[in-house]
Structures are given as structure tokens and as C-alpha cells.
Computed example of a mutant assay.
Amino acid sequence: MATIRKRNRKWHVQIRRKDHPTLTRSFDMRKHARAWAREEESKLDRIQAWQSPVSMHRLTLGDIVRRYRDEEVPKKRGADVETTILNAFLRSELVNNKLSEIEPAHFAAWRDKRLQHVRPATICRELGIYQHMFGVAIKEWGLPLATNPLAEVRKPKRDDRTPHRIPDSMVLQLEEAAMKGRTPLIIALLRFALETAMRRGELLALQWSDINLERQLLHIPKTKNGCPRTIPLTPAATAILLSLGRTKETSFVFPITRSALAQCWRRLCRRAELKDVRFHDLRHEAISRFFELGLSLPEVALISGHKDHRMLMHYTHLRPELIVLKLNATEPRDHY
């Protein structure tokens, strides 16, 4: 219970709770003091409700998911995608279980059932979200769980898929398919992705204010690893931007949503009769082309934004026939 006293023309509020630091504050008006006291006591009530062992029998998994979605996810850069994943998870039967009943076996059964419909990589991503969710609930919300139930759930083995190289012939196929659609902007976006090796999110967030055409530089303020970078523009990339032109309607270079792009890409591949080709393969292709042009590892890392050179090698898929041409172009050495 909050204590409110008047001292020296001020209303002083003091709130004491067991296992919590004392809260104090002063106000000029009594009504403001009472309002603050009610708000803070309500917060403490919610905290104690979550930390109580009784909460394990009262709260459901759905309660955890909803709080995590509403309080933690908005702080993330990929909030939209993660919110969609959590909303879909809330439609499953698993979220109706009480927290006291949740065991690793529940998530293992959910994993096996989900594997019948989606790829292992999707399962790994979703399990990672739920494991982080329980970690936050235990460490920051005081949920009385001894261990994280997701820590003991085995993640499925990811597909050993080798990203496609995208030669010019395939680009032409995609462009011809795009011309039959209603989104001509996708052609410029596709070409620009091949010239810059930018991620999909970086392309869609690109604004004209980030571009310096005179110096042929492009600044990416928000990146996946949190480190802004400035990349050089190839002559072809500069030409693409000049062909687009800046309009007053929007500040974005490619005014298209993530979901619209995903849908457009699926239609393109279907029209072009290309199977298992992903938009992210464009980034793999672009990085491989930079190496084939003769750029050094640090130069390509500056463009791609990779901090780990081992991960950069994962994106590199050199064509052996080009290496043969290089070897044949070298002067023969004397044999001893």
C-alpha cells in the first residue's frame, strides 16, 4: 500500500514491497501523487503475479507469447516478420497449455508436425525466437522456471542447399517474365541487387538521401549486423538509379513492401519456369561476381558488410571454368 504525506507544501509518495526497492516521488498536487501511486502499484502487481509460483498454474504459453510480442518484438529491426510468426504460433493448440504443463516434449512434437509443411531452416528460426522468448521471461520477467524448455529441443538439420548462380541468361528470363507482370520496378530492383550485393531489407529501406551519385557512393545506415556502411556504386548501378529518377511521391528508391516483393518474386520464377531460385541468391551471385572481377577480400567485405570472412566465403561460388581461363593466361613456368 502506498503512503502519501504532505511535507513542505509537497505531496510525498512512498511505496514499499517485499523483495523490491522502495519507490519515492514528490508532487505539487495530491491527485497527481495518487495517480502515480496507482500506476506504480499496478506495475508491481503484474511483476509479482508473474514471479509467483502460482502463476505457472494460472498463465498459459499464449500469455507469454502475447507479452513477448507486444513488449519485446517492437524493439527489434525485424519486428514485422517476427510478429507474423508469433501471431501464427498463437493459432496453434500448444499455446493453450498451462506453463506448469509445458515440457520440451511438447515443442519436439510441434517441431515434427511442423516439419511436414515447412523447411528445416524455418523451424530453426522459429525455435530460436521461442527460445529467446523464454530466456527473456526467465531472466527479465522473473518467470519461476528452472531451465529454458527450448534449450533441450533438438533443432532439425538445415538443408544442404547450394545457392544458384544467376547467369545473364537467367536474368533475361526473369526480366521477360517481369515484363508480363504489373510490377516493372522489379527489373530495376533485380539488376540493382546484382550490382550492389545488398540485402533485401537494405534495398527496400534505401532512400534517395542515402545516395551520392556524383561520388558514386551509397550509404546504408541500418544493417543486419548493426554496423552502417558506405559502398561504391558500379557504373551499371549508377545508370539504374538515373533511369529510375526521383519522384515527389516517395523518398524510397524502391517503394515496394516486403510481402509484395516476396509475392512478385514467386510469380516471376513461376512464369520463367525457374525452380528453387530465391531472391537472396542475388546476393550470393553479386558477391561471387565481385571476386571474379578481381576485387580483394577486404574490398568485397566492405561492399557486402560481412565481418566474418568465413561467412563471406559461404557467399562465394566461383566458376571453375573462369579459373581455368586465368591459369591458361599465365606464363608457363619452367619445369625442373
Rank of each mutant, 00 (worst) to 15 (best):
K326C: 11
I138H: 06
T83L: 09
A121S: 15
P149S: 14
F107N: 07
V136K: 15
H309Y: 15
T316G: 02
V54Q: 11
L61G: 03
L213F: 07
T183D: 03
F27M: 06
F27E: 04
R310V: 11
E176A: 02
E72I: 15
L327K: 02
I187Q: 00
H20G: 00
P184D: 10
F254C: 13
L261D: 14
M29P: 01
E321Q: 15
I287A: 12
I187W: 01
C269Y: 02
I64T: 08
L23D: 03
P144L: 05
L86W: 07
L61H: 11
L145Y: 04
I186M: 00
I47W: 05
Y68N: 04
L233F: 06
P232W: 07
R258T: 13
K139L: 02
P255V: 11
D19Q: 02
D334P: 03
S251I: 13
N8T: 08
H306Y: 05
R266G: 02
N87I: 02
R333W: 12
P232H: 08
L194W: 09
R270N: 14
D276R: 14
D210M: 09
L44P: 05
V65G: 02
T183I: 12
L203S: 11
G128T: 13
L99R: 02
T84I: 12
Q207H: 10
I129W: 04
T247A: 13
P228E: 14
G201K: 15
Q48I: 03
W265R: 04
L302P: 01
D63I: 06
Q51M: 07
R270D: 04
D28A: 12
E101C: 05
T250I: 04
E214H: 12
Q263V: 07
K75C: 05
P320A: 15
P228N: 12
I186E: 01
I187E: 00
T22C: 06
R200Y: 07
P104Q: 09
M313Q: 14
K224W: 14
R114N: 01
V277E: 09
K248C: 00
F107C: 10
Q51A: 01
V54H: 01
R154K: 15
R111T: 11
V95K: 07
H314T: 09
Q131S: 15
E249R: 07
V171N: 08
R111Q: 08
A121Y: 02
E176M: 00
Q173C: 02
E331S: 11
E82L: 15
R246P: 01
K18T: 07
L23M: 08
H284I: 09
N225L: 09
P144E: 12
S92R: 14
L189E: 05
R270G: 00
S304Y: 07
K248R: 13
A178I: 02
K76A: 10
S55T: 13
K139H: 06
R9V: 04
F134I: 03
K18F: 08
P255H: 14
D334K: 14
R215P: 01
A88P: 00
V54R: 13
R154G: 02
K75R: 08
P255T: 07
E101Y: 03
C269G: 08
K222G: 03
R25W: 06
D334Y: 08
S304G: 09
F107S: 04
A329H: 10
S259R: 10
T83A: 10
I166E: 06
R283H: 11
L213Q: 09
D63C: 05
Q263L: 12
S209E: 12
T257W: 10
R17W: 09
